[in-house]
């Protein structure tokens, strides 16, 4: 269980982790600046298990994998958005940061609401309002990568 951080549409990878911090690539160093250009306090208040909920096209822009790495290293357990930019989506799966496309989450959760998610079983609960919602299952192809623990593990098996 965690609390919700809520952001709008078109959250780009430049605000998730500004390029001025890309002279390093160690996850905790990146997490120290995660989201700071749109939410300066995020890095100070985020706790393990928290969830980001956003609108359309989350993660647009640069292909920097540092963006999902920074989010994951911040302790965020998953990102739920109306839609994701395609490179961010691939990167998140490849490094094992679960991302969920949901039409309703953005409207049904407020900032700081308590949330519980079980993507395996396919539900999420707003503990603040005590309402439960369905989570769409991942495509089988993507689920395979997740089950193997990321892309590098999945190609090891195939070779």
């Amino acid at each position: 269980m965690g609390k919700v951080y809520k952001y709008g549409d078109h959250i780009d990878t430049d605000v998730i982790i500004p390029a001025r911090y890309l002279n390093v690539h160690e996850p905790n160093q990146l997490a120290a600046h995660c989201m700071e250009d749109i939410d300066f306090e995020f890095k100070n208040t985020v706790k393990v298990g928290d969830v980001i909920i956003a609108g359309e096209n989350f993660g647009c822009g640069s292909s920097r994998e540092h963006a999902p790495i920074a989010i994951k290293a911040s302790g965020i357990q998953c990102v739920i958005a109306k839609s994701f930019a395609r490179i961010f989506l691939r990167n998140a799966f490849n490094i094992g940061l679960p991302v969920i496309e949901s039409d309703c989450a953005y409207d049904e959760f407020n900032e700081k609401d308590e949330i519980e998610v079980d993507y395996g079983k396919g539900w999420m609960i707003n503990k603040t309002t005590q309402k439960q919602y369905k989570v769409n299952p991942l495509p089988a192809f993507m689920m395979h990568i997740v089950e193997k623990g990321g892309l590098m593990n999945s190609i090891r098996e195939e070779r």
Partner: peptide, 18 residues
């Protein structure tokens, strides 16, 4: 097309991408 670093790493091993 653009991809991420892990995709690049996997492709450097296999010569393939999904």
């Amino acid at each position: 097309t653009g991809i991420g670093s892990t995709d690049l790493a996997a492709a450097m091993v296999t010569g393939k991408c999904w």
